[in-house]
């Protein structure tokens, strides 16, 4: 019973200005899964995301999405195929209204379903629905994170990469964020959740990877990772 493989990263080597950050990363996400990628600051998590999303060209290795080789493809092509990233720091358009941000979520993909997706996103985030005409830069941090996710959902992603969605949120909002991620997953969305928040991420995910200094040092079922003595020592301090 092999589930459909959505994202398949093989031996990815990548970095900036010739300095390698990732030294051969293997990682995959199947349809309907939540996979979490854990790692401390500087481990290379965002480098991985940005190479997968086509912002940078990897030095070596390959990235397949639904069987298609997308290594070094343009971000426009990758978004058009349905691999959408909600980046760390949200990267919303601060000078545009909430509504315009959401509209641009469907700039490249699912444009003809814009109206229905807009309804869906405002059903998930009623707060955004109330603030459609507000300038996005004036939203609170939590609302901006919701907007970033909502904008990503407007493209009807086949796989959504969430890069540190809980970063900078209050504990209450972090709870809310993880509840939301669970909801999206129940509705059938596959997610790659990149987080520093180890406990909650592993509770949510089916499988996990731990990235350290550009290498995957640990991977497996989330329940097993939770029990792993090395991980508990390194990330939970026990």
């Amino acid at each position: 019973m092999t589930a459909q493989r959505l994202l398949d990263i093989r031996g990815l080597r990548a970095g900036y200005d010739g300095v390698a950050v990732l030294h051969g990363v293997d990682l995959h996400v199947d349809a309907g899964e939540i996979v979490t990628l854990l790692g401390s600051n500087g481990a290379g998590k965002s480098t991985l995301n940005n190479n997968v999303s086509g912002l940078f060209r990897p030095y070596d290795g390959a990235v397949y999405f639904e069987g298609e080789d997308i290594t070094g493809a343009s971000s426009t092509h990758i978004v058009a195929r349905g691999l959408v990233q909600v980046p760390e720091g949200r990267r919303i358009f601060p000078n545009l209204t909430v509504r315009e941000n959401l509209d641009l979520g469907s700039y490249r993909r699912a444009r003809q379903h814009r109206a229905s997706n807009l309804e869906r996103v405002t059903a998930i985030f009623p707060r955004l629905g109330e603030r459609m005409t507000q300038i996005a830069g004036t939203l609170s941090g939590g609302e901006q994170q919701m907007l970033a996710i909502g904008r990503g959902l407007m493209a009807e992603p086949r796989l959504l990469i969430l890069d540190e969605p809980s970063l900078g949120l209050s504990p209450l909002l972090v709870e809310e964020m993880f509840a939301l991620i669970r909801r999206l997953h129940v509705e059938g969305l596959a997610l790659l959740l990149v987080e520093q928040n180890v406990v909650q991420s592993l509770e949510l995910a089916q499988r996990g990877y731990v990235l350290e200094n550009g290498r995957i040092v640990l991977s497996g079922q989330a329940t097993e990772l939770c029990e792993d003595p090395a991980l508990r020592r390194a990330y939970l301090g026990v």
């Binding site: 971000s75 426009t76 978004v79 980046p87 949200r90 000078n95 641009l104 979520g105 700039y107 993909r109």
Partner: peptide
């Protein structure tokens, strides 16, 4: 027009939405 204004302020966010 929205994409033009978006790119003016947030280029990386625009790329990630598939804006060329």
């Amino acid at each position: 027009g929205r994409a033009i204004r978006a790119v003016a302020k947030e280029r990386q966010g625009a790329r990630l939405m598939g804006i060329d």
